[in-house]
Design a protein around this nucleic acid. Structure first.
Length: 713
DNA sequence: AGGTTAAATCTTTTT
DNA sequence: GATTTAACCT
């Protein structure tokens, strides 16, 4: 109980019966749940009888670390909802009609499958956008509706019938591939608990104590899972803050936390309203803003901290000026002995990271971007993963279809159709058909190629289960991917290759942390990464991230950029659903309350969006701050506006072909390789490359910023 | 089959 | 501005 307030201690010591902790921003919630979990393990339960559900893997990892430091909790279950479900589904795979090695499809995989399902349903993808269909299927799953239930309850109009049909095809294809999408993990677990009495009793008996963090952002399926698991012992502790609910668009239901006391009439409620994180100035500004939400229970956060530095509001001529000024301020901070790691920059949409990134790079300020999901969505990573998935789960046809001709092996559409036909006729998986290439009579010259691929996969499957790193290494070497990336990458830096090696290293890290691990489990782990998980606290770098990714974190110094009408609040979000504006305001509130010492809000009068520079308006949220407490600064100078137009070339139009004096066909001299001819200019990963054909060394790519070339003639 | 080029489309947030 | 798709060429 060291250093806890009365309210905090109360929450920690309440052991029996339901408990709701309404924890305002910065009120020491993490501390409370950590101590509580440790307290339970020390006083009333075994560690493995306690299940703590966090919002991200990063949060889970930190909690485990702290609890371990308190000397208990080695075997406590600490994970996210999705990870919990994946684990349970692997255990009870047989009961739910899966195999234990099922693949978890990410959103891109899932969307591609939806697209296939649309054409299977004899519908046109032009009229039925895969994106929208995916969304509707996702909603159906969040409400635990199977395809047939959906068909009988929702399909009363034309569009509903179409969705039902697509959903049915989609789901059966998923099942054929022994795969789950994100929603499946929750839905299948919820259904398992609902339909299977034995499992329900076993699990709810097993978890005597349940802690669920960020309860305000649980959806219906998660709510049901929690309810079922808590049924036997009723020791459910939910923590959260309605003011920080920012995932309604993903199906989160604020009502879950608001109804907690109705669900559990004997619930004890603890309110934590003293803020230990932010200065008085920051807290005051954030409180004032959130008070403009009408649908909100009154709550007053308070602090004994001094007022501190005023919150600043910067008006900038252009987005480039905005980024420039922020970079300058960070530079200044560092020169005064501050650490780059103290600083964070938040924005509403990922696209805004770019200007900030460029400015930081120009000033050589170390930075990192919180983007786990994007990393694993990269082409080179997905290429590599497709092999690993196929090794782990032979039914994963999506992976097979990608791997079989990446890098190109001369196995094209026609061949694949023949193989797939053979599989269908014989009632086997495509993988099995590939493995039996020798006996497919319709194949001619391609038979050898398919056979070679089958051999490759067999060899990889024969590798020992551990270490996983060795499997990953074998994949990139034997598949030819490594050679391919080597060939196509730039001379001095090669992003694709670097990324793949980073993946290899990640596998190595996994091996170290999980001596009993497996390829399947590692694949699961990386399927469920969040943007937050990739943040390295030890790195000493400025951290850039979306407001959503900032949830649960704190930084001494925070910049929030792009405070413009339509950006924050975001236009689409505000229009899309009822209460959209209020959720956007909560998002701003979450961002502001991450700051401990200094908070700067900025907006740019001109910003380039989708390649066009547009005049903006100040976000009306900025008018809802305590005016007399805020310090305003202006960086407005018309001549700076042209900076808003600074950009790089993408497609080769006449003008941009001559960028830096190079154009396709022009002859150049390279310091090491000698004379050559420019094949083309290209942009990859935000960098410009020039591809040159040399007489003897063939074609090579160079990153423009790293190479000196001389134009001949 | 594979690769190049131009046109079309698009981003809001994410487990 | 960036990415995806379609059309075109080898």
């Amino acid at each position: 109980m060291d250093g806890l307030t009365d309210a905090q201690a109360e929450a920690v010591q309440h052991t029996d019966g339901p408990l709701l902790v309404l924890a305002g921003a910065g009120s020491g919630k993490t501390r409370v749940i950590t101590r509580r979990a440790a307290y339970l393990a020390r006083m009333v339960a075994r560690a493995d009888e306690i299940l703590a559900i966090t919002f991200t893997n990063k949060a889970a990892g930190e909690m485990r670390e702290r609890i371990t430091a308190l000397g208990v909790g080695r075997h406590m279950w600490i994970c996210t909802f999705h990870a919990l479900c994946a684990r349970l589904l692997r255990t009870y795979a047989a009961e739910v009609g899966l195999q234990g090695n099922f693949t978890i499809f990410d959103q891109a995989d899932s969307r591609a499958l939806v697209k296939q399902a649309i054409s299977k349903s004899d519908l046109n993808a032009d009229n039925w956008s895969p994106r929208a269909m995916q969304e509707r299927i996702s909603q159906a799953k969040q409400n635990l509706k199977t395809p047939s239930e959906y068909a009988s309850t929702e399909a009363y109009d034309f569009s509903g019938k179409a969705v039902a049909k697509i959903y049915e095809h989609y789901q059966s294809m998923l099942e054929d591939q022994n795969a789950c999408d994100f929603d499946d993990l929750l839905m299948r677990t919820a259904r398992l608990l609902e339909d299977n009495k034995g499992v329900r009793l076993a699990l709810s008996d097993r978890f005597r104590y349940l802690l669920i963090d960020e309860y305000q952002d649980t959806n219906h399926a998660q709510y049901l899972i929690a309810t079922h698991l808590a049924r036997a012992h009723r020791n459910l502790c939910a923590t959260g803050d309605p003011d920080q609910s920012i995932y309604a668009w993903r199906g989160a239901d604020l009502q879950n936390i608001l109804d907690f006391e109705a669900d559990y009439e004997d619930a004890k409620v603890v309110r934590l309203e003293q803020n230990f994180r932010s200065s008085g100035a920051i807290l005051s500004a954030a409180s004032e803003l959130i008070s403009h939400n009408e649908h909100r229970k009154h709550k007053k956060l308070w602090t004994t901290d001094e007022f501190g530095a005023s919150v600043e509001l910067w008006t900038c001529e252009s987005a480039n000026i905005e980024a420039e000024k922020i970079a300058e301020a960070i530079e200044q901070y560092i020169s005064e002995g501050g650490q780059p790691g103290d600083v964070a920059i938040f924005y509403r949409i990922n696209a805004l990271s770019r200007v900030a990134e460029d400015a930081l790079r120009r000033k050589h300020i170390p930075y990192q971007i919180a983007r786990g999901v994007e990393f694993y969505a990269r082409k080179e990573i997905k290429d590599t993963l497709s092999y690993l998935r196929l090794i782990s789960n032979p039914a994963d046809e999506t992976a097979l279809m990608r791997a079989i001709n990446t890098p190109t092996r001369g196995i094209g559409k026609v061949t694949l159709e023949r193989v797939a036909d053979y599989a269908r006729v014989n009632g086997i998986t495509v993988d099995a058909a590939v493995q039996a290439a020798e006996t497919i009579s319709t194949l001619k010259t391609a038979r050898k190629k398919v056979g070679a691929f089958a051999e490759l996969i067999r060899g990889l499957r024969d590798l020992p289960e551990r270490p996983v790193k060795r499997i990953v290494q074998a994949v990139i070497e034997r598949s030819g991917l490594e050679a391919e990336f080597n060939k196509q990458g730039g001379e001095i830096e090669n992003d694709a290759l670097d990324n793949v090696y980073e993946l290899v290293n990640a596998a190595g890290d996994y091996d170290l942390e999980n001596p009993e691990g497996s390829l399947t489990e590692w694949l699961q782990q990386i399927s469920l990464v969040s943007d937050q998980d990739m943040i390295d606290d030890e790195r000493g770098a400025v951290t850039l991230m979306t407001l959503h990714a900032a949830k649960g974190l704190e930084f001494p110094i925070v910049f929030m950029i792009g405070l413009e009408e339509g950006m924050l609040p975001h236009q689409r979000a505000a229009e899309d659903r009822l209460g959209g504006i209020e959720e956007e305001r909560r998002l701003a509130f979450v961002g502001m309350t991450r700051a401990m010492k200094r908070l700067t809000l900025s907006w740019a009068m001109y910003r380039m969006v989708r390649g066009v520079t547009e005049r903006t308006l100040m976000s009306h949220f900025l008018g809802q701050l305590p005016e007399d407490e805020i310090v305003t600064r202006e960086f407005v100078d018309e001549k700076d506006r042209s900076l808003a137009h600074l950009g790089r070339f993408n497609q080769m139009d006449i003008e941009s072909q001559y960028v830096d004096g190079f154009y396709p066909g022009c002859r150049v001299r390279h310091e090491d390789y000698g004379e050559g001819e420019v094949v083309r200019l290209e942009t990859r990963m935000r960098k410009q490359y020039v591809r040159i054909r040399f007489r003897e060394d063939g074609e090579r790519s160079f990153a423009l910023e790293h190479v000196s070339l001389y134009v001949i003639d």
